[in-house]
């Protein structure tokens, strides 16, 4: 399933211009690439969050596929209802087309408030793909910490203060949490490695049952960097091994794209204003701590892969 940009460009976009995401918005790229990979016959459910807000300000919609938004925490439950309806109507001969069912949620709507609904949907085995566009905080409400916000990051509810240097908890590993549901396909991706990401979307959609992709999607507003650097930062997250690209197919971990030589995590951190305070002398040890964690997690992933687990 090679992704060919020239071929893809012929089908046109399913997320059109005129939406109101910030200039250089990573999540908008994540959605657009996913839809290009999925194609026209796709129904989308979207959780409340930046992407829902900026794409559907009445009377304008940026969507060229059927799309439904209901609430913040229920994108997974909503798509499971849509998919159940499809199954029932297909059985009754009222619909015959093959349709992709995709839910998009931000990290807040997925790691945190929507985790229960997502877990239920995965466990019930609906034939859907859930894509979490992870911009590592609640951006729509003004950059608050989430379970996905990395250690040390400044957000408006984990501010870098005189006493507390940003977020003092590690991010939860949602990809592994979902993998533990023993579903056919789970993957982690980043928008800079579009071929890897879009290939995963297509692969996921070719598999029956519940699928999950966690795609890192930098946010210039919340990560405090210049809008042109979105892809560069998405790429560095992968090259520093902060965000490994891998998949878990039928329970087996496989690294899909490996940086030849790991770049120190500091190179990634230093481009982002949310980590600026870590570069003060007294906080330097936090960077070391983050590096150590990144190395440990990578080792763990490698070990899983090598063991065929």
């Amino acid at each position: 399933m090679a992704i060919n940009l020239k071929e893809l460009s012929k089908q046109g976009d399913f997320l059109t211009s005129g939406h109101r995401a910030c200039a250089g918005c990573g999540p908008a790229i994540a959605l657009r690439q996913a839809l290009l990979a999925a194609g026209k016959d796709t129904v989308v459910a979207n959780a409340t969050g930046c992407m829902e807000v900026v794409t559907t300000i009445f009377p304008y919609t940026a969507w060229k596929v059927p799309w439904i938004h209901s609430l913040f925490e229920n994108a997974a439950a909503t798509i499971s209802g849509v998919e159940a309806a499809y199954k029932a109507l297909k059985r009754k001969g009222k619909i015959s087309k093959d349709i992709n069912f995709i839910a998009f949620g931000g990290d807040g709507g997925t790691y945190d408030i929507g985790l229960q609904a997502l877990s239920g949907t995965m466990e019930r085995g609906h034939n859907i793909l859930y894509i979490c566009y992870d911009n590592e905080a609640y951006m729509n409400t003004g950059i608050q910490r989430s379970g996905a916000t990395p250690y040390g990051a400044h957000t408006t509810t984990s501010p870098a203060g005189k006493k507390i240097p940003g977020k003092t908890q590690w991010r939860k590993d949602l990809t592994e949490i979902i993998a533990a549901h023993d579903i056919p396909y789970v993957a982690q991706a980043t928008i800079s490695e579009w071929r890897d990401y879009m290939g995963k979307v297509q692969k996921a959609l070719s598999i029956k049952g519940p699928k999950f992709i966690n795609v890192l999607a930098p946010c210039q507003l919340g990560w405090y960097y210049k809008s042109e650097d979105t892809i560069k930062i998405a790429n560095l997250a992968f090259r520093t091994r902060f965000w490994p690209l891998y998949e878990v197919e039928n329970g087996v971990h496989r690294i899909t794209k490996e940086p030849k030589k790991a770049v120190p995590v500091e190179e990634w951190l230093k481009l982002q204003g949310r980590f600026r305070h870590l570069f003060k002398d007294e906080n330097r040890k936090i960077i070391e701590k983050i590096q150590k964690r990144v190395d440990e997690r990578w080792k763990r992933l490698k070990a899983l892969e090598e063991a065929g687990l």
Partner: peptide
């Protein structure tokens, strides 16, 4: 493939320029 605003004009496999009506200048 990287444009968040679908503002790159492509036709017949060729990059033809920008939709300045939508390009946010990121």
């Amino acid at each position: 493939i990287f444009c968040p605003d679908s503002a790159i004009i492509v036709s017949n496999n060729e990059m033809k320029g920008f939709k300045y009506d939508y390009c946010k200048g990121c």
